[in-house]
Amino acid sequence: MDADQNPKASEKKTIGPPTTSAYLDPHYWDERFSDEEHYEWLKDYSHFRHLVQAHIKPNSSVLELGCGNSRLSEGLYNDGITAITCIDLSAVAVEKMQERLLLKGYKELKVLEADMLDLPFSNDCFDVVIEKATMSSENICTFNFLVVKEVLFVNSGDPWNPQPETVTKVMAMLEGVHRVLKPDGLFISVSFGQPHFRRPFFNAPQFTWSVEWITFGDGFHYFFYILRKGKRSSADEELNQSHDKPLVPTISMFHEELEGEDYIFRTNIDEMD
């Protein structure tokens, strides 16, 4: 069966830009979303649905960052979480997402053009903020075999010592998320970014949230981070200081892991010669 007869195969035909720096160019995303109907970075919702159901209540107000053309919001909606606001920097993505959701009858879902580095929402207005592969780090695995690419950390340099511009962007995003969350709100981040590289950002002194994570997935480990606003403790500080070695996911992969764009851009080709 060829790609035209197999919808899943056609979805996997997506090929990324010639350089990862293009991910920072809004024009790249507008052009891509003009032609692409759907693409899931990392795993789709079905793979971490059980984790979402354990942490998000159906009556929660949810903000999704960098929705693109993902079906994450649709998965949440079908599980009874209907108060959802999705944002993306690409006007093309927003328009196409609005059309798609309207056609499917998901009238309650809001899709807005907005920058996650400058969230246009009032303080303490969301129960949950969730993102998938929008903010993470270029974590280098043992033997420099893998490079994990997620948007804010493109061109970040050494993952142990990111460029100042990268740090500024990541902190702007986290400060905005912390601000719009209700006092007991939840920030959920789904990522390849390993805890060793995430904790220095999450545990910055201006944040009051606790930090925990759950791994899921076969072959490569994906991380489901749960940050609870107002729940930080001295134990969180001690945990952050006690881990001085990165948690390295296994290199074994199943066939489906090799086909997606997220794998292509976490492979350091120069190191494989």
Rank of each mutant, 00 (worst) to 15 (best):
W160R: 02
I84D: 05
K245T: 03
K43R: 14
R179W: 12
P26Y: 00
I226T: 14
R100V: 04
P249R: 00
K96T: 08
S156N: 03
A54K: 14
Q163E: 11
H196I: 07
C125Q: 14
I87D: 12
L72N: 05
L109I: 15
M253R: 12
E40P: 15
H243A: 10
T20V: 14
V180Y: 15
H221C: 01
A93K: 02
K13H: 06
V151I: 03
P7D: 07
E150W: 00
F216R: 03
L239H: 11
D118T: 13
N240V: 06
T19F: 05
E74N: 06
G193N: 15
S156Y: 02
G157Q: 12
D218V: 06
C125G: 04
F216H: 01
L227T: 05
N123H: 15
D2G: 06
M1K: 05
V62H: 08
F192E: 02
M171D: 15
F254L: 04
I214N: 07
P17H: 15
W160F: 08
K182H: 06
K110F: 00
L24V: 03
C86S: 13
V92T: 14
L109N: 09
P162Y: 01
L72C: 09
P18S: 15
E256M: 04
D25G: 06
S189G: 03
V190K: 05
H243Q: 15
K8L: 12
R179L: 11
P58F: 10
F126L: 07
E95P: 10
P246I: 00
A83S: 10
Y23N: 05
F254Q: 04
M171N: 15
M135L: 06
V128D: 07
E108Q: 12
V167Q: 12
N268D: 14
N203D: 04
Y23G: 08
K107H: 11
D115Q: 13
N6F: 14
T14Q: 12
L109D: 11
D158V: 08
Q98A: 09
L102Y: 00
F265T: 08
L101C: 02
K43N: 12
H221M: 02
D236W: 02
T215V: 01
L186Q: 10
T267W: 12
P58A: 09
G16E: 12
F33L: 04
V128W: 09
I84S: 10
H50K: 09
N203Q: 00
T20I: 12
P205G: 04
S136C: 10
S252F: 02
H27S: 08
V177I: 11
A54G: 14
I188Y: 04
F121T: 10
A91K: 13
G68H: 10
D127S: 15
D262M: 03
P195T: 03
G80I: 06
E108R: 10
P164S: 01
E138R: 06
A172C: 13
E271P: 03
P120S: 12
N268L: 11
M135E: 01
L152E: 09
I188M: 07
N59R: 00
